[in-house]
Computed example of a mutant assay.
Amino acid sequence: MSREVEQTNRRLLRARDAMDRAYAEPLDIRSLASIAHVSEAHFIRTFSATFGETPHRYLQRRRVERAMFLLRRTEKSVTDVCMEVGFSSLGTFSRTFSDIVGVSPTTYRQRGEVIPYVPSCFVMAWTRPSSFGEARDKTR
Rank of each mutant, 00 (worst) to 15 (best):
S2E: 12
V5S: 07
V5N: 06
E6I: 15
Q7T: 13
Q7N: 11
T8E: 15
N9H: 14
N9A: 15
L12C: 00
L12Y: 01
L12H: 02
L12G: 03
R14S: 15
D17E: 15
A18C: 14
M19A: 08
R21T: 04
A24P: 03
A24C: 08
A24W: 14
E25Q: 10
I29G: 05
R30A: 09
S31W: 09
S31E: 11
L32V: 01
I35Y: 05
H37R: 15
H37T: 13
H37N: 15
E40V: 10
A41H: 11
A41D: 14
A41Q: 10
F43G: 02
F43D: 07
I44K: 05
I44Y: 07
T46F: 05
T46A: 10
F47C: 04
A49L: 08
T50W: 07
F51S: 00
F51C: 04
E53R: 09
T54F: 08
P55C: 07
P55F: 13
H56P: 01
Y58H: 04
L59Y: 01
R63N: 09
V64M: 02
E65W: 06
R66G: 01
A67V: 01
M68G: 02
M68C: 06
F69M: 10
F69S: 10
L70H: 02
L70P: 00
L71S: 01
L71K: 02
E75A: 04
E75N: 12
V78I: 11
T79E: 12
D80M: 08
C82A: 13
C82I: 03
V85F: 06
G86F: 03
F87Y: 07
S88D: 14
S89A: 07
G91V: 10
T92C: 05
F93H: 01
R95N: 06
T96C: 09
F97K: 02
F97L: 04
F97Q: 01
S98F: 08
S98M: 09
S98E: 13
I100Y: 13
I100P: 00
V101Q: 03
V101G: 06
V103P: 02
V103I: 14
S104D: 06
S104I: 12
P105D: 11
T106N: 10
T107H: 04
R109L: 03
R109M: 04
Q110N: 10
Q110P: 00
G112A: 00
E113C: 12
E113V: 13
V114Y: 02
I115T: 15
I115L: 10
P116C: 07
Y117M: 03
V118W: 06
S120I: 14
S120D: 14
S120Y: 12
C121E: 09
F122M: 08
F122E: 15
V123P: 00
M124P: 02
A125L: 06
W126Y: 08
W126K: 13
T127Q: 08
T127W: 03
R128D: 13
R128P: 02
P129H: 06
P129D: 12
S131F: 08
F132S: 04
E134S: 07
T139W: 06
